[in-house]
């Protein structure tokens, strides 16, 4: 069970109060109608699954109901930082060369 610092409540709270919402910083395309099927498909379905540092979106569901971001190491499970929506992470992620997702 994680011990998560809620950047809004400014306290560490138990994981039971939170709900994970997947990868952070997924911006909805500004002009959705102009997206190609491939672009829209990437936005809809393709997610990172890194070994190491990852930015995740969580919600403090049983607390303040606010969404916020976490930089977490998926190997050690250490949380390096939490920050509000709209803020930038302080921890830099290593450059990873992503393979072009395959479309079937």
């Amino acid at each position: 069970m994680f011990n998560i610092y809620c950047p809004y409540c400014e306290e560490h709270r138990e994981e039971e109060e939170f709900h994970p919402s997947g990868q952070a910083h997924l911006a909805r395309p500004a002009d959705a109608d102009a997206c190609t099927d491939k672009e829209w498909g990437d936005f809809l379905y393709f997610r990172k699954n890194p070994r190491g540092l990852h930015q995740e979106l969580w919600q403090h569901t049983a607390g303040c109901r606010k969404f916020f971001n976490i930089t977490r190491d998926t190997v050690s499970y250490q949380i390096l930082e939490t920050y509000k929506v709209g803020q930038s992470p302080q921890v830099k992620l290593p450059e990873v060369k992503l393979e072009e997702p395959r479309h079937g």
């Binding site: 709900h19 919402s21 911006a27 919600q59 109901r65 606010k66 969404f67």
Partner: peptide, 13 residues
Amino acid sequence: LNWLELYHQTEWP
């Protein structure tokens, strides 16, 4: 409710 909050907080604050 969480869906509405998600879109309000992350997309259209």
